[in-house]
Simulated scan of single mutants.
Amino acid sequence: MPGFRIIRRTLLPPAEAWLRLTDWERHGALVPLTRTVVETAPPTGVGTRFTARTGVRGITFDDPMEVTLWRPPEAGAAGLVRLEKRGRIVTGRAEIEVRPLPAGGTEVHWYESLRIRGLPRLLDPTVDAAGRLIFSRALTAILRP
Rank of each mutant, 00 (worst) to 15 (best):
M1L: 12
P2T: 14
G3P: 00
G3H: 08
G3I: 03
F4P: 00
T10K: 10
L11K: 12
L12S: 04
P13H: 13
P14H: 11
A15G: 11
A17N: 02
W18L: 01
L19N: 13
L19H: 13
W24F: 14
W24P: 00
W24G: 00
E25N: 11
R26L: 11
R26N: 08
R26I: 05
H27M: 09
G28K: 02
P32I: 06
L33G: 05
T34Q: 11
T34P: 00
T34W: 05
T34S: 14
R35T: 14
T36Y: 00
T36L: 02
V37L: 10
E39M: 07
P42D: 06
P42Q: 08
P42C: 04
P43E: 11
P43D: 11
G45F: 02
V46Q: 04
V46F: 05
G47C: 05
T54K: 02
G58F: 10
I59Q: 08
D62E: 12
D62H: 04
D63K: 00
D63M: 01
M65A: 09
E66M: 09
V67S: 01
R71V: 12
R71A: 13
P72I: 07
P72A: 09
E74W: 13
A75Q: 15
A75V: 14
G76P: 03
G76C: 09
A77S: 13
A78G: 07
A78M: 11
G79M: 04
V81R: 01
R82I: 03
L83E: 01
E84K: 07
E84H: 12
K85C: 04
G87W: 01
G87F: 02
I89A: 02
V90Q: 04
V90M: 09
T91N: 03
G92N: 06
G92T: 07
A94H: 04
V98T: 04
R99M: 14
P100C: 09
A103M: 11
G104W: 08
T106E: 03
T106V: 10
E107I: 08
E107P: 03
E107F: 07
V108E: 01
Y111G: 11
E112T: 10
E112K: 03
E112W: 05
S113I: 05
S113A: 13
S113H: 07
L114G: 00
L114T: 00
I116D: 00
R117Q: 12
G118H: 12
L119C: 07
R121V: 12
R121N: 12
L122G: 06
L123R: 06
D124N: 13
P125A: 06
T126A: 15
D128L: 15
A129F: 12
A129Y: 12
G131S: 13
R132G: 08
L133T: 15
I134T: 15
F135M: 14
S136P: 04
S136E: 10
S136T: 14
A138N: 08
A138L: 11
T140H: 12
T140I: 13
L143Y: 10
R144N: 14
